[in-house]
């Protein structure tokens, strides 16, 4: 699974939704299949690549910049599982400075350091902090750095709300050369209705679902060991799920500009789903009420 031209992918999603876990497993799956992969964590928490490098210490780009020394590529990167090159942008001390501008500065430095020319990756995955709270966090999709974005979401309303915000950003920047959307990665699917909600959201916004990742104890266990599922339990079902998502991501050329839902419409859409779930819970029999 190699390609001459690097594919730069940004992965967004609400904080705590499993973005880093999903990204790291996709990176691991791609690398195991023979691709050269770079994963760049664009989150001040700087924990995106933990499971790829066994929780080993990795100085962040911004930490190195703060020290004022001349930063070298080897100071801010480490080769992790299956040869994935791990980089963390890091961020300022919480409550001080501007993390959005920090990500911008970190990505600029990586380009100056000729990371991509040196490493010649097939895939570069940017794992970007939660919501697109300001222009700084839109850098990976805005300035031609990546040409495609994916969003990780569960069926929770706030996760879909964050996804919708990303769609707004893509909708704004794509016409002027920004990234387009590759699709949704449905994560932490538990109840039967979870996928239905996400499918409905995808249909309304005009995007497709790239893959479905059920909630699994394998993920939690692997993380506790400081590993991806691909490394910890390569023959398990969950590893197969991630491999499938990685394969689709690698092959996907169907990129779209999504149609975000207006804030009020999104709320009323959510309320409708609330009503449907309530009806299901109390066993209401009604025409067209099937989920």
């Amino acid at each position: 699974m190699t390609s001459r031209k690097s594919i730069h992918v940004s992965i967004y999603g609400k904080g705590g939704i499993g973005k880093s876990t999903t990204t790291a497993n996709i990176s691991a799956a791609l690398a195991v299949s023979g691709a050269k992969v770079v994963q760049i964590g664009c989150d001040p928490k700087s924990d995106s690549t933990n499971t790829l490098r066994g929780n080993r210490h990795l100085p962040t780009v911004l930490d190195s910049m703060r020290e004022g020394k001349k930063v070298k590529l080897e100071d801010i990167s480490v080769v992790g599982f299956a040869g994935v090159l791990c980089v963390e942008s890091g961020g300022p001390v919480p409550g001080v400075g501007c993390a959005g501008r920090g990500i911008n500065a970190a990505v600029t430095l990586l380009k100056e350091l000729k990371l991509f020319e040196e490493f010649k990756p097939d895939f570069v995955l940017y794992d970007v902090l939660g919501d697109v709270v300001c222009g700084g966090f839109a850098v990976p999709i805005r300035d031609g750095i990546t040409d495609r974005a994916y969003v990780v979401t569960s069926a929770d309303f706030m996760a879909l709300y964050a996804a919708n915000n990303l769609f707004k950003a893509i909708n704004k920047y794509a016409p002027t050369g920004g990234a387009k959307l590759g699709g949704i990665i449905a994560n932490r699917l538990v109840a039967g209705y979870s996928l239905s909600i996400i499918e409905d959201f995808a249909q309304k916004t005009g995007v497709k679902i790239l893959g479905q990742v059920p909630r699994s104890i394998s993920v939690s266990r692997a993380e506790l060991y400081g590993k991806t599922v691909i490394e910890d339990e390569p023959d398990g079902e969950q590893a197969d799920v991630y491999r499938l998502v990685a394969q689709r991501l690698a092959e996907n050329q169907d990129l779209v500009i999504p149609n975000p839902i207006g804030t009020n419409d999104l709320r009323s859409w959510a309320r409708d789903w609330g009503d449907r779930l309530y009806a299901q819970e109390i066993g209401l029999v009604e025409e067209m009420a099937a989920i």
């Binding site: 911004l62 910049m65 300022p92 400075g97 501007c98 501008r101 920090g102 500065a105």
Partner: peptide, 9 residues
């Protein structure tokens, strides 16, 4: 730039 990223206090 560094005073923007890390704060200029």
């Amino acid at each position: 730039d560094r005073h923007v990223v890390f704060g200029g206090g």
